[in-house]
Nucleic acid binder design. Structure first.
Length: 126
DNA sequence: ACAATGACATAAG
DNA sequence: GCTTATGCCATTG
């Protein structure tokens, strides 16, 4: 059950310290460009016992969303600041600098046990 | 199987 | 820049 969730956790676990990524990016890595909501939900339902750096995952706007859960946003900001990520006055992170470029596709393949390699020319912009 | 939900994404006002 | 509206996907009741 929740196979997608596990994949999400796997990817999030690969996020290096001091970097942040977005739900959409993760969804795209998993091959579901529009499953960002499910990704967010996966982290929301994150079971304790998974050492997943959920605090390194934010929305594409670079800001923390906690829909009513201000505690999370506050904690998340603290954790990220502790890792060297700087926040804007609006609580937004500069994805240009701290945004995780994502794993090289082959790394993702290993994580996901690959499926087909015909994706080819994906965008790994410099 | 259907309806409802959710830490989103994107476009429009 | 911030708020509102619509779409998408997987999980749960």
């Amino acid at each position: 059950m929740a196979g997608f969730f596990e994949q999400v956790y796997q990817v999030v676990r690969q996020v290096p310290p001091g970097k942040v990524t977005s739900y959409g990016a993760i969804a795209r890595m998993l091959g579901h460009p529009h499953a960002a909501r499910t990704v967010g939900w996966a982290l929301h339902s994150l079971p304790e016992g998974y050492d997943v750096p959920w605090h390194r995952v934010i929305n594409s706007q670079g800001c923390i969303s906690a829909s009513g859960r201000e505690s999370w946003a506050d904690l998340q900001r603290a954790l990220l600041e502790a890792e060297g990520v700087e926040f804007d006055e609006q609580g937004t992170v500069d994805l240009e600098c701290f945004g995780w470029a994502g794993l090289p596709w082959h790394e993702i393949e290993e994580l996901l046990r690959l499926r087909k390699s015909s994706e080819t020319s994906e965008v790994w912009m410099p």
